[in-house]
Design a binder for these strands. Structure first.
Lengths: 307, 307
DNA sequence: AATGATTATTTGACAATAGCAAATATCGAG
DNA sequence: CTCGATATTTGCTATTGTCAAATAATCATT
């Protein structure tokens, strides 16, 4: 990606940070005319929504100073909002839990926060509400550096073939400079598959990560004895977790189960990651031939695997 | 929308608010080991990015207490970061502007903020970075009650044909229960177009909103005298702003410019929004015939327009 | 079981941040 | 010229947050 683009993205993120800071700031220190400060409210929230947490747990989650947190907890206890139960396993810590009074206070806080959000949502048309929440979930998923959930493989669903065409077209254009004819070829393969595939001997797998497609592969009939592997792709978002290997593995297992004697595939020399995946899976390079396609000078390769 | 869904959306927004609060909170009081508090930094930012603003202007923008703001401004002046110039028109106010020293301080702050964002972006794959910024722009636009950005029409880019296939497949499946064969048909049309379209007499338009595709239409050659309009689609995200009309309008204008004598198109009786668009554009229903396709019993319609 | 290192929490002291209300100086309309 | 409104300042105060040291329990090792 070019530097100007990168700077533009950074500027966009910073603009958003400023924007959302004031958006959140409207809630202000004493939020929603409750008797709690923002920090207090967040601590109360954590106590209410965790299973007898310790102060430490909350401190880590919220990034609060331990001393400050300790005082907040003490104040809550004095006010009769929480109880501290000794933890026999470790007598330095306490298990924090709400009292009936605390639950009441939290419920009130929770309700007004709920209502406040409901009000802002109410003025948006339905489609916008959906877009808003989708965008928020997207940001949360992208920025929470929790290890990405493992990708799963599944059957294609409506729209998935289109996704295959789109991602091939966009990715090969940006990474290798392929022109539109390549996307056309992929669309043709997808069309043929959708139009007349033999479910008993042909199949497609979509790799999914957090609800978005990140990879694909097809196994189709080349002849009665020979299967052909096509359209193997792993989106950058799904790379580095052996997805390519898994996709190819599914194909090989399925081909074996179908009674094919051989799998063949066509790829390009420049697609080094894919080549490596094929090699590791047991494919062997059997032919290699330069050609000019998709606006590029390429070296096409045929790989095969006996089953 | 059902109440449970609405509650789910509210919960999603609240979860995001909590999430982003701590995300921003990492910056904390004294952000980026600068000598400025968050409020001070934001005031400095406003002074740097506005044209000699008054204190009042900034106070409104940031929602700060005037007294507090006044002290921040005084401190900045004492530290030699800003100059206050009297405004002859109103001697209660001052025009605030950075000194050389102030510009330096701001540049430093700006740079470290830039770098910090750059770091978080760096660990994301390219596609995710784009998704992130798009999502942020979306939220900003939806929550600042400015008029929604108008969609724009453009030429297709790599991946767009795939998007057309995907959105047709997914949308018609969910809204009308069409089966996979429909997506196959769309893929076939897209493949044919990409493989061999005559740029002088055939064309495709993509409607874009906030950097995402929200609509499409194709005009292709049916015979030397007759053009065919195909694959008109407006995604739910782009509805309600006359996009369908604009897309069809482009087609008609282009067909005229190419010297076609007639435009024809095939649609289904159940697609009421599209039918209305065609009718409004001047198309006339010339034939109607029941058929069974895409797993549904439909009534296909042929519409025409003389040019 | 004694040792030292680590960990969870508490306490004291203090500084930064923020908010309210009253004061000051100016402006604008009549 | 006067009255009400406006932009900013000032005094006062409470809250919020930080830092460092203290306390007490735990853990790993000998």
């Amino acid at each position: 990606m070019s530097q100007p683009d990168r700077d533009g993205q950074i500027a966009a993120v910073r603009a958003f940070n400023r924007f959302y800071t004031s958006k959140l700031g409207v809630l202000g220190q004493h939020l929603l005319k409750s008797p709690f400060s923002l920090s207090e409210a967040r601590v109360l929230y954590e106590i209410a929504n965790r299973d007898s947490p310790s102060a430490k747990e909350i401190g880590i989650e919220l990034g609060l100073d331990p001393g400050y947190l300790s005082r907040i907890v003490q104040k809550f206890e004095q006010d009769g909002l929480i109880l501290r139960k000794e933890l026999p396993a470790d007598r330095r810590q306490y298990q924090l839990g709400l009292t009936a009074k605390g639950r009441l206070a939290f419920a009130k806080l929770d309700r007004s926060s709920h209502n406040e959000v409901a009000e802002t949502l109410a003025i948006l048309p339905q489609g916008d509400r959906e877009r808003l929440t989708r965008a928020m979930v997207t940001i949360e998923r992208l920025l929470s550096n929790t290890a990405p959930a493992a990708a799963s493989l599944r059957e294609p669903r409506p729209g998935d073939m289109g996704w295959v065409v789109q991602s091939h077209g966009a990715l090969y254009a940006s990474e290798y400079g392929f022109d539109a004819s390549f996307e056309g070829l992929v669309a043709e393969i997808a069309a043929k598959f959708l139009g007349s595939f033999d479910a008993s001997r042909e199949r497609c797998w979509i790799a999914e990560l957090d609800g978005t497609q990140v990879g694909s592969v097809f196994l189709v009939k080349h002849s009665d004895d020979v299967a052909k592997l096509r359209l193997l792709l792993v989106d950058p978002a799904g790379r580095g977790q052996g997805l390519g290997r898994r996709l190819v593995g599914e194909c090989v297992a399925f081909a074996r189960a179908c009674g094919y004697r051989k799998i063949t595939l066509w790829t390009q020399s420049i697609l080094t990651a894919a080549r490596k995946t094929y090699q590791d899976a047991g494919f062997v390079l059997v032919a290699s031939e330069p050609h000019r396609s998709f606006g590029q000078s390429l070296i096409g390769e045929t790989w095969e695997m006996k089953l």
